[in-house]
Amino acid sequence: MEVSANTPAVVTGGASGLGAATVRALAAKGAKVAIFDMNEEKGEAIAAEVGGIFCKVNVTSEEDVDAGFAKAREAHGQERILVNCAGIGNAMKTASRVRDENGGLTGETKHFLLSAFDFVIQVNLVGTFRCIAKSAAGMLKLDPLSEDGDRGAIVNTASVAAEDGQMGQAAYSASKGGVVGMTLPIARDLMSEGIRVNTILPGIFETPLMNAAPQKVKDALAASVPFPKRLGMPEEYAKLAMTMIECGYFNGEDVRLDGAIRMAPR
């Protein structure tokens, strides 16, 4: 599906990082982009920069997502493109021993809080599916763009942690593994409707979260990438997202974008 002037698009998590780069890539082709995010200041700024609109949306909220799509469609029409970049992470071992302030064992134990586990699943997995389902239902009403019957394209964001998660990433890996696992079934659900679904598994990228890390930590992470020995750039994610959107034969795929890294246990 060619992205051209006034093509309606929605990007969740579009106020920063991978999402913001994708917003800019879509807008550069003339797309009218709606940014779903919780950060009003950044979201409004990027929307003004690209001539799009900002919708304050928490993807765990049915009401927020419905209101976001309604606002986006009123402004731009039914979206033909959805890119899901909204996501969070946390780190906690499944179970571990408690240590005192001096590092000694206390004899007590603790486990991953189930509420924290559930929150990551709700944002990364259920939130992604919620946006997919509601967007796809709207796309069904569109006329096909080509003789192939192409109506729309959906791109999701998983992580290399879906395949080689590290210590403390049980919740994050489970949520991203779920996104990978549902990609092909959803593509098959929508195959007769001309809606394609693909997922990107980014490695270690230069994002606002990573920018907060000390430089020596970033340097060590970059050195662990086989080639090129650096962190990924959000614009590289956006390039792959655009390929998935515009290449009509790209469907039902989960693609790592990671410089050939395979994550160590810790």
Rank of each mutant, 00 (worst) to 15 (best):
T12R: 02
A95N: 11
F250S: 08
R80Y: 00
S192P: 00
C85A: 12
I154N: 02
T207E: 02
A5W: 03
L113F: 09
G178E: 11
A67W: 13
A48I: 03
I88G: 03
A171V: 02
I186F: 12
V50A: 05
M210V: 15
I204C: 01
R262M: 14
E2D: 13
L184Q: 10
P185L: 12
D254G: 14
R73I: 00
H76G: 05
G248R: 13
A158F: 09
T157V: 07
K216Y: 14
H76C: 04
E74T: 06
T199C: 15
L140P: 00
N198L: 07
G51T: 09
T183I: 09
A264D: 10
L190D: 10
Y172I: 02
A70W: 01
N58Y: 10
V23A: 12
A187H: 12
K29P: 07
S159Q: 03
G51S: 13
F36Q: 11
N156Y: 06
K218W: 00
L240D: 05
D189S: 12
R130K: 11
E41C: 02
R130L: 14
C131G: 02
V217I: 14
E147H: 10
E235M: 03
G103D: 04
K56C: 07
G51W: 08
A171F: 09
N90Y: 07
G14Y: 01
K229P: 11
A223M: 09
G232H: 05
G232I: 07
G103M: 04
V57C: 08
L82P: 05
A48F: 05
G138N: 07
L184K: 14
L221A: 13
E101F: 06
M244I: 06
M92P: 03
E79H: 02
G152P: 09
E79I: 01
A212H: 03
E44R: 15
G87L: 01
A15W: 00
D254V: 15
L184C: 03
T183V: 12
A264Q: 14
V155F: 04
E41M: 11
I35T: 06
I88Q: 08
G194Q: 04
G177R: 06
S115H: 13
T12W: 04
G168W: 07
P214F: 01
E40F: 07
D37K: 07
K42P: 01
G13Y: 06
L190A: 08
D189T: 13
L221C: 01
G127R: 05
G30M: 06
N211Q: 10
A170D: 08
R99P: 02
T60N: 04
S16V: 01
R151V: 04
A162I: 11
E246T: 14
D143G: 03
A75E: 14
V179E: 09
L142F: 00
S61Q: 10
E193F: 11
S4W: 02
A158W: 08
I53F: 04
L240G: 05
V23Q: 10
Q215M: 10
P208C: 00
K216L: 13
R97N: 12
G177H: 07
F117H: 05
M191L: 12
R262Y: 09
D37S: 12
L209Q: 05
L221P: 00
G127V: 05
N90S: 12
R151Y: 06
E40M: 10
F129E: 02
A264F: 03
Y172N: 01
K239A: 15
L140D: 00
G168K: 07
S115G: 13
E79M: 08
Q169M: 14
M263A: 12
P202N: 02
V123Q: 06
